[in-house]
Simulated assay, not measured.
Amino acid sequence: MAIRPYVLLSAAVSVDGRLDDTARERLVLSNRRDLDRVDRERAAADAILVGATTLRRDNPRLLVTSAERRARRIASGKPEHPLKVTVTGSAELDARGAFWHCGGEKLVFTVDGALSRVRRILGTLAGIVSTGPALDWPLLLDELGRRGVERLLVEGGGTIHTQLLAQNLADELHFVVAPLLVGEAAAPTFLAPAQYPGGSTARMKLLEARPIDDVVLLRYAPKIRS
């Protein structure tokens, strides 16, 4: 039986808990030093996962930026960039997005009802796996483990973070707070209401609290609660 990957959630939020504002251009919450820290996490990962909503909204490339880190990955026998993974239940994907046309291997997880449409949209741009009639996160993680993914970096969005935390599947959370106030009711939030393990009084273990210039990194172990 394959071992599931270590799941690391990564998010940057404003002081009022928003992942972005409602403007067309993405709101940059992290600073230069923190973005370099995220690049280190990408270089250490075997796969990077984002939801399809994040692909539509941000059009990310999800690459390792540092040439030195890419070279170290290659020297250690790894691909230059981690496997890129997305999840969709609706098949609302744009094959023209940057995600599909740079980096290395891509993988899409979907559901039975959207499988044929995903195949039609993407063709040979990515591997495609259905988890059944509904999105099955344990099955998804098992499949990544079978493919040799030992460390999975999850970069959003809020729905993905909510589901993984609610199902107690996240091993570590990197939560960066930026000194901004978005103040827009329609702006996306880090988490949605859900039944989280242990309820509202279960305290996650704090692993680290560290300022990085004008942002603060909080590292938590969500599975260790008191």
Rank of each mutant, 00 (worst) to 15 (best):
M1E: 12
Y6L: 13
L8N: 05
L9Q: 06
A11L: 14
A12R: 03
D16T: 10
R18P: 03
D20S: 13
D20V: 06
D20Q: 12
A23G: 15
E25K: 12
L27W: 05
L29I: 08
N31Y: 06
D34I: 03
D36W: 10
D36P: 01
R37A: 11
R42C: 03
A43I: 10
A44E: 14
A47W: 06
L49P: 05
T53E: 13
L55G: 12
N59Q: 12
P60D: 09
T65P: 02
S66F: 08
S66C: 07
E68F: 05
R69N: 11
A71F: 08
R72Q: 15
K78M: 14
H81W: 09
K84I: 04
T86E: 07
T88P: 05
S90F: 00
A91G: 07
G103L: 12
G103I: 10
K106N: 15
T110S: 08
T110Y: 09
V111C: 07
D112H: 10
D112R: 13
D112K: 14
A114K: 02
R119M: 04
R120V: 03
I121C: 01
G123V: 07
T124E: 15
T124M: 04
T124V: 08
A126F: 10
A126T: 05
G127Y: 02
I128L: 11
D136F: 04
P138D: 11
L140C: 11
L141K: 04
E143S: 12
L144C: 08
G145C: 12
R146G: 15
R147W: 06
V149K: 04
R151C: 09
L152E: 02
L153I: 03
G158T: 03
T159R: 12
I160A: 07
H161V: 01
Q167P: 03
Q167W: 02
D171Q: 02
L173S: 00
L173E: 00
A187H: 06
F190T: 05
A192M: 09
A192K: 11
S200I: 15
T201S: 14
P211I: 08
I212M: 13
V215C: 09
L218I: 14
Y220W: 13
A221G: 03
A221F: 01
P222Q: 07
K223Q: 15
